[in-house]
Design a protein around this nucleic acid. Structure first.
Lengths: 238, 238
DNA sequence: CGATCCACTTTCCTATAGGATCGCCGCAGT
DNA sequence: ACTGCGGCGATCCTATAGGAAAGTGGATCG
């Protein structure tokens, strides 16, 4: 029945930090959107699928529970967190507005490192956006390109957060990042505001370079407000 | 050999949510300051002391790891997080300034519920402060009174955060709360700014009531800046 | 025909055992 | 005397087993 003769399967995962490995696997599973919200996350089922014992799976789920991606009901098990409601969406944008503007303010004035990194991130974001638009004009929605675009967008903002020199703000931003990713795959069907986002990122980068009349904080505020307005409008239409 | 005849020890803890119970016990242990920073937190030692199996202890430590109160070194075990350095202290105050002012701004204008709760919290804080000062004048430093004072202070700010209507900001505030508690027991010897803190809390409450010339956000900003200034000065002296 | 009760299955939760690794101490060699 | 090295203890990490509770299906009775 249960073959106990497995001596040492020596699976692909390295022994070091098996818990973190399991965590990343489940995280990837959640962010890929292959499981719908509310679905059960059975511990030993996942353990069997990953060919590990339930213990590291349990630890990874505890870790994920604090990120808000999964919910736990005592003696009932873990579930994928339900999709964000309209109130949570509004609060998420509000919180992001607070954090992003604060980070931009604290990162001002920008040193040469920040200007350089911001330029690179901006360029990657613009190029990824062009590829998405190109694919979109061809009538196809490429998941890989969309993921790459979102990653470039996240990187752009991460550059600002790292430059603000406050590890706690960085941690909060990462904490919200998971919720943000959840929103993207639940509320939005695709990317429709590439041009606006690229333009606003350029405005932020220019503000950090000392160009234009806006402070970096003001430029970032306009960007987040713009994202919120477009997202809510799209959510209302969809 | 190993007595498997243990039928059901049925210890004092209820079966429901043993993990959360262990978490709170360890949290209380950490916040009480009975363990110095850097001390080892052996899993099975704690498990034996609490008379539970290592698994819930492990889960509780994973939970605590994400709060920043404990650190984990792979294959080396858990340790109490080292004390906050001067840089971390400055960043902590900066982050708190961002969050608290944002919460105060979002909670404006205050409804009657907020005014009432704020008044009660303010009163408890003032009374706890008076007791601390009274004990301090008598030459003794009462740990219980100090703890009560800090709890009242935390409650006052928690009222504002709950009123701001943003669960993400509330979560961030609680996340910083642990670090804040860590700072209080590491950097500060005692409470020396009761009068200033009480007065600033009163200014915040008055601002929410529409009295005075300051907005709640401005009053809260002055309060946090004041706390920062006094704390850094005390840390420099001590 | 419908509601209730009971047994079964599934799953979580805890406990225990064993393998692997890291730090430490004593010892030999230069 | 100092340094490299091997054994030993402690601890972490993973795996497996068993008990308890919740959900589910079917059978029985009104």
């Amino acid at each position: 029945m249960t073959m106990p003769s497995h001596p040492a399967p020596r699976r692909g995962v390295e022994r070091r930090g098996l818990r973190d490995h399991v965590y990343e696997l489940i995280l990837e599973l959640l962010l890929s959107g292959e499981v719908e919200p509310g679905a059960r996350l059975a511990i030993d089922t996942i353990a069997r699928q990953l060919d590990v014992s339930p213990t590291p799976v349990r630890e990874a789920l505890v870790h994920l529970e604090r990120t808000g991606l999964v919910t736990r009901e005592a003696l009932k098990g873990y579930r994928v967190a339900p999709p964000l409601g309209s109130e949570e969406l509004a609060e998420l944008f509000e919180a992001r507005l607070v954090l992003e503007t604060a980070a931009a303010r604290l990162a001002t004035p920008a040193g040469p490192d920040l200007v350089a990194q911001l330029g690179e991130a901006q360029q990657r974001h613009r190029e990824a956006g062009e590829r998405v638009v190109e694919a979109l004009d061809a009538g196809r929605v490429d998941l890989a390109l969309t993921t790459e675009y979102f990653a470039a967008d996240t990187d752009f903002h991460a550059v600002v957060f790292r430059a603000c020199g406050n590890r706690y703000l960085v941690g909060m931003s990462e904490s919200l990042g998971a919720q943000l990713h959840r929103m993207r795959q639940s509320a939005l069907r695709g990317v429709t505001d590439v041009h606006e986002a690229v333009a606003e990122h350029a405005a932020v980068a220019d503000a950090f370079r000392g160009l234009g009349e806006l402070t970096p904080e003001q430029a970032m505020e306009r960007h987040i407000v713009g994202v919120r307005t477009r997202s809510l409008a799209q959510a209302r239409r969809g």
